[in-house]
């Protein structure tokens, strides 16, 4: 027989299947994104995917790994999509390519490839680009401008000048700037009342993108692809600190709901802190990882100099993973209650 070791029966599972389901779970969020910004996001997803596959193929070749097996595993596509979804929708194409190359070549393959990277590649890409190209990474399109797909395409391709159309800020930024300019004379509730920017409960339009991620994330949890611990921890961390500060001074701090549905929070909760490779592996560890990432993300986005804090929070936590795992090893069968 062609098999040598038990078990001879295997579940129908593969890395490819796991990655495919993660991609599927991103679809609701992407749909909302298209509704909000337009089909340009498809272009960005395609650019990122192509760049990722090319980089992956090159690195596999250099490292002398079987191309077909690893190119097909889908892990590069997940990274690519997460990058496209976290970058500004009208970022120039080369910015995306730079991000993807950094993620695949440096963050993934230089660390040993699939399964070996201590840092989340997509978050590495985001962090590197926001530090290197802070202006480009902060140009979010103002909503309701009604740019045509062709105009958007020209901007992405660098054929049209990067104009006023891109000076819109994310809702998170808007609050931060307004508070800074107002120097205490402005309070958050009245800001949030401006539906034009802040929509119904978080950021206009963006709240629905976040809701799409939430939906996809819950589906992943239902399918058993991600555990509840990391997302629950992340949401708990974010809500805890946002809620505490909001209760203490509602005039200066936005409510937890706003934070939960703004920026990369939902994407982070279900698709970033749940990354198995760079995250914790023990159930308790996953929760701690999520919780700490949620707290840190809030601190960075509210008190730090960057528009959002998820990426930096996750990268910082990635460093702590071995330690957290070591101290959260669960007791084994028959040894509970013993040391």
């Amino acid at each position: 027989m062609d098999f040598t070791t038990p078990p001879y029966l295997l579940k129908n599972a593969s890395v490819q299947r796991v990655m495919l389901q993660v991609l599927l779970a991103l679809l609701p969020g992407i749909a909302a994104y298209v509704w909000l910004i337009g089909p340009i996001i498809f272009v960005q997803l395609a650019i990122a995917s192509l760049a990722a596959l090319a980089a992956e193929a090159l690195m596999l070749k250099l490292r002398d790994k079987p191309l077909g097996l690893f190119l097909g595993d889908g892990s590069a596509l997940v990274t690519a999509w997460l990058i496209a979804l976290t970058f500004p929708p009208m970022a120039p194409w080369w910015l995306l390519v730079v991000g993807v190359l950094f993620a695949i070549v440096v963050a993934k393959h230089l660390y040993g490839g699939l399964g070996q990277n201590p840092f989340n590649p997509a978050m590495v890409a985001f962090a590197v680009c926001i530090v290197s190209f802070p202006a480009l990474m902060s140009q979010w399109p103002a909503l309701g401008l009604g740019l045509s797909f062709n105009q958007q395409l020209d901007i992405v391709a660098g054929l049209a000048p990067r104009v006023d159309a891109l000076t819109g800020a994310t809702p998170l930024d808007a609050i931060k700037t307004a508070l800074k300019l107002g120097e205490g004379s402005i309070d958050v509730p009245s800001l949030l009342a401006n539906q034009n920017i802040f929509g119904n409960f978080a950021g206009r339009g963006w709240e629905w993108v976040a809701a799409g991620y939430l939906l996809g994330g819950l589906w992943l949890w239902k399918r058993g692809i991600v555990g509840w611990q990391a997302p629950a921890g992340f949401i708990a961390g974010l809500v805890l600190i946002a809620g505490a500060l909001w209760l203490w001074n509602p005039a200066q701090f936005a409510n937890p709901l706003f934070h939960l549905f703004s920026g990369g929070a939902m994407l982070g909760a279900f698709f970033i802190v749940t990354d198995p490779v760079s995250g914790c592996t023990t159930p308790k560890g996953k929760f701690i990882f999520g919780l700490a990432a949620g707290l840190l993300a809030y601190l960075i986005r509210v008190f730090g100099g960057y528009p959002d804090g998820v990426a930096f929070a996750v990268l910082l936590l990635n460093i702590c993973v071995p330690l957290i795992d070591m101290y959260t090893q669960p007791p084994i069968f028959g040894m509970k209650g013993e040391k």
Binding site: A13, S14, V15, V18, P66, L69, F70, D73, S75, G113, L114, G115, Q116, G227, P276, V277, G279, T281, T282, Q329, P330, P331, I332, F333, G334
Partner: peptide, 20 residues
């Protein structure tokens, strides 16, 4: 073919002796 471990933790979930 065997792939690298992606630390998904499925094995730990399935282990009746609660090992890692």
């Amino acid at each position: 073919p065997e792939m690298p471990c992606i630390r998904c933790g499925e094995c730990a979930k399935a282990c009746p002796h609660e090992l890692q």
